[in-house]
Each structure stands twice: as C-alpha cells, then as structure tokens.
Design a protein around this nucleic acid. Structure first.
Length: 490
RNA sequence: GGCUCCAUGGUCAAGCGGUUAAGACAUCGCCCUUUCACGGCGGUAACACGGGUUCAAAUCCCGUUGGAGUCACCA
C-alpha cells in the first residue's frame, strides 16, 4: 500500500475556526499514525475574501498546537507550489478544464449574471429559498458559436457537464456508501470569469496532483462530494479515501459560526486556554479512543488515533467541559511554565509589594482558565468591603462575639510575633488553640476573614498572612476588631 | 421546499443480536479540610416513537417524528 498523504487546505479568510482546527488535527493524526505525510496547502482562489493576516494566523496556530506539516509553501516536498494562486500561474487548472471540455465533460458558459438571477427567481420554493440548478443553456452552443464568442472576448466560465440520468455512488470512510441521483447534480463552475478555478475544481486537481490519499473535510462537503466524484471519474483518476467529519455545533446545535465568541482558536487562547488542552478537547469531539482515557498529549493521540472510530453525529462544543479539561492541564503543568502564564495575570491585579509566586502557587489547583485568577486574588491588593456577618459560620461555631474575643486575644501575640512564615504563624496559633482548648475553626476562621474580607480564598489564614506580611496583616485585623466592636455594641 | 446525513442522560460518549446500558463534564449529597478548591465516595439522569425480523433488538429492516448540513463565478 502506498504511503498515506493528507492535507490541510485552509483558505486565508480570517480567524481559525475550531472546526478547521479539528479537521487539521485529524488530517495530521491520520498521517502521523501511519508514518505518512501531512501537507499544508493554501487555498486562496477567492481574491475577494483573501485577508493577508490570515496566513499568519494559520502558521501561528499550527505551530502553537504542534501540528507541524511536512510539506507546504515553506517546505517544498516536490509537489509545489503549495499556494493555489501560484499554481494558477502555471496554467494547470485551465489546462485541465479544457481537457474536460474536449472530453465533453465540461463546457463553456457565457450566461450573464442577470440571466442566472432570473433563472433562480423563476424557481423559488415556498419560503423563498432559491433552488436553482443551471439549465445547461450554453451546452446547446455549437463549437463555432463558442469559438466566435471566445474570439470576441465575451466573458465566460467553464462548467462541469453532469449527466441527467443514472446515479452516482461514492464511498466515505465514516458514512459508508452514499448515492445521489445524477439529476440532482448541478453543473458547477470549474473556472471563474476571472480565470481562477473554483475551490471545487482546484481542490480535486490539487489533491490528485499532490497524490493525496485521504481527503478529510467537514461534513458540510458531503452533499457536493458526488460532484467531485464525477470529476475524478471524468478525468479517469483514482478516487481518494473520503473522510467526512461530523460538524461541531454551538449549544443550540447549529454549526459553529465565527460570531459566537468562543469558536475561534484565537478567542480560546485569549480566554486563557492552553493549546494542548484545546487540541485534546477538540480531538475528543467526534472521536473516542478504545478505552476510557480522556487526557492525551498530541504524541499520545498520534499513537492511538484511528479514524474509523470517528462518529457520525454532530457534537456540541461544550465550553464547560473544555474548561474542566484546561484546568486538568493547569494542575499538571510544571511550575515554571505555569508561572509564565500566571504571573502576568497576577501582576495586573496585585500591585502591592509581595511574593507573587506564592500567590500563583496558591491558586494553581483552583482555576480552570487563567483569567479566573483575577477574581480569586484581588483581596491581596486591597481589603474589600465586607459585612461582619461573614464572621458567623455555623460549622466553625463562630459568630461576631467570639470572633471579636479571639481577634483581641490574638492581636498582642501577633504584634509580638516576628516570624510571619506559614510555619511560624501556625506554631503561634496552635499554641493559642491548645491553651484555650478551641477548635481550629474558631480561631482560623475569624483570622482568615479579617485578613481577606472574603468568604472564600485560595489558601488559609497562614498563607494569606505570610504573603501580606506583618504590617498589612495587623492593620487588617485591627480593622476587623473595630468593625466587630461596632457590630456587637448594637 | 429538494437532496443528503444523523438520532443512547443537559453535554461528550462506550456499545456492533443476549450488558445490572460503561466512563467523563455538569448537577446533587457525603467525607476530608481553617473557607473555597483539590482529592475520595455515592446519588439523580438516556436507548425519540411505531411497526417488523429474531428464541432474543439500543444494536438489523421499514416507516413516523425530530435535528443538522447543503442547494454561489465562498471555501
């Protein structure tokens, strides 16, 4: 069997969609799993929608996620050029299209936009949707008429000439055999008026020329697949293995659109997702391994990925589970790399002179996504306004009265204490707790509350006080005492 | 609307004729703990419906319903 060759063929029109990323990932994995070749091809045949920055995004995203290609515009593997606009200059597409014209599998069409529009208008459904199929009007033209128009410079396109009877059957690795009546097949345009090939045509020609063995793409191409199949047959080329992946949808089960915020890879990165978590999550959307595992590195995926296990039904992009998975990656991250991500976020919220690394460590197991940090640590910077009701906690058996008592007792001891390390503070508090025969919570709850002003905090009283330091800790405790005195009097 | 595809809990999903119908996220409860989180334990929750085929159907077939995709000189 010949070596597997897959290709990722994005069109540079904007941000990278998670659907695109997953397609790229599966293409990459299919190739890597079999020690095949993964090629990157840029499909820029639409000059209208072309946006140059999109190229950067594609390269950056692939590099970041580790989907490295073996061949592409920047890595010649002998099948170049790898950019369609450059391939066009070689004249291949027109040449192949003409070949089809000679075979009677395609024909010149001179119909104007106006005629096409009226054709559609005359054939509307109840809800106003156009169901136009080209009427093969220009197929009637004699070769003399065609030559004449061509010579006169009349703008033209070249259309595929599909049969009107019989059926076309093609095979997909995921969906099995699919058959469509030829009568349904529209004579799609192969070469546009501007001389560029359409995606449909360029795709088939390039896949053949680049010897792509597995054509992986989104399910939205399933309905045009028979037309591609006809093209292969018309040329007499071998049909590749089709792998159509189910669509990824939003929470309303609609195809992900670029507008829904969390649907582009860039957006996700901005929201604090790690590239490897995105890859892992997206891999499991529409595919599952043979066991229960859920956490996979890219290398591990390469090992176990079998595209025959791709599912048929669409998958909802569940941001909640994606966050959970990201949290798992954060917990497993080694500290140095974690700090690279966490510290910048912390610096933005905590301006006080204190050990930011300690704060970062405290919060590592408590976040799912980096921006979560901000809300959890803001109290380090500034003691928030809080209500003395917070001193009351049923389980800790604390209330305003006994909290006031504890804090007043502790204040002189804390003032005398020089060692504000976790260990030092713990020793001090444990001594007091033992002396008064109290439950830990009776002492630690009021302390933590006074020092943080929050119901819940990363770390306990010791950790927080260590980071805040003696002076700030004492000032916050004094404030707590003052607040409690006022509240108790009432 | 035509065509094509799909159908297991709220979500991702295992399952390929015989299972107490896995697992994960979410949710709820308990334990651990100075709070929260982490971690541990447990609970709630699914085969869309109707017909066949079969000794036996979530699994095969046919309908119905529901959903999605697609119908461009966009990819």
């Amino acid at each position: 069997m010949s070596k597997i060759r897959t290709r990722f063929a994005p069109s540079p029109t904007g941000k990278m969609h998670v659907g695109n990323l997953r397609t790229a990932l599966y293409e990459y994995l299919i190739a890597r799993h079999e020690d095949g070749t993964f090629v990157l091809r840029i499909e820029d045949t639409d000059q209208e929608r072309f946006v140059p920055e999109a190229l950067d995004i594609i390269y950056k995203t692939m590099e970041l996620t580790g989907l490295t290609h073996d061949e592409g515009p920047d890595k010649d593997g002998g099948y170049g050029p790898y950019v369609q606009s450059e391939r066009m200059k070689t004249g291949v597409y027109l040449e192949y299209a003409k070949q089809l014209v000679e075979k009677g599998e395609a024909y010149y069409c001179f119909c104007t936009k106006e005629r096409l529009d009226s054709l559609r208008a005359s054939d509307k459904t109840d809800d106003g949707k156009e169901i136009a199929k080209y009427d093969k009007h220009c197929l009637q033209l004699s070769s003399e008429e065609v030559e004449e128009k061509l010579a006169a410079g009349v703008p033209y396109v070249i259309r595929q000439n599909n049969p009107t009877t019989g059926t076309t059957v093609f095979h997909d690795a995921i969906y099995g055999d699919i058959s469509v009546e030829n009568e349904e097949l529209d004579d799609m345009i192969l070469i546009k008026t501007d001389g560029y090939p359409t995606y449909n045509f360029a795709n088939v020609v390039d896949d053949h020329m680049m010897e792509i063995t597995h054509v992986v793409r989104g399910n939205e191409y399933l309905s045009s697949a028979p037309k591609y199949n006809r093209l292969y047959e018309a040329f007499g080329w071998d049909v590749p293995e089709y792998v159509h992946c189910p669509v990824i949808t939003d929470e309303n089960h609609k195809k992900l659109s670029k507008r829904c915020g969390h649907s582009s890879v860039e957006d996700l990165l901005e929201q604090g997702f790690l590239p490897e978590a995105i890859i892992n999550f997206v891999a499991l959307l529409g595919w599952s391994p043979s066991d229960d595992r859920e956490i996979f590195s890219l290398r591990e995926l390469e090992e176990v990925f079998d595209y025959h296990h791709i599912s048929k039904s669409p998958a909802v992009f569940d941001i909640t589970k994606a966050k959970w998975m990201n949290g798992e990656y954060i917990k497993a991250m080694d500290m140095d790399r974690y700090l690279e991500y966490a510290l910048p976020v912390i610096k933005k919220t905590v301006t006080r002179d204190c050990d930011l690394t300690k704060i970062a460590e405290l919060v590592k197991t408590r976040i799912e996504v980096f921006p979560d940090i901000t809300e959890k640590i803001d109290f380090f910077d500034k003691l928030p306004e809080y209500d003395t009701a917070m001193y009351t906690h049923k389980k800790m058996k604390t209330n305003s009265e006994n909290s006031l008592e504890v804090l007043k007792d502790m204040l002189p001891r804390l003032e005398a204490q020089e060692d504000y390390s976790v260990a030092g503070l713990e020793a001090l508090c444990k001594e007091y707790i033992a002396e008064k025969e109290l439950k830990n919570g009776r002492v630690l709850w009021p302390l933590r509350t006074a020092v943080s002003g929050k119901q819940m905090t990363p770390g306990g009283a010791y950790e927080i006080m260590e980071i805040l330091g003696k002076e700030e800790s004492l000032s916050r405790i004094r404030k707590g005492i003052a607040m409690l005195e006022e509240a108790v009097e009432k």
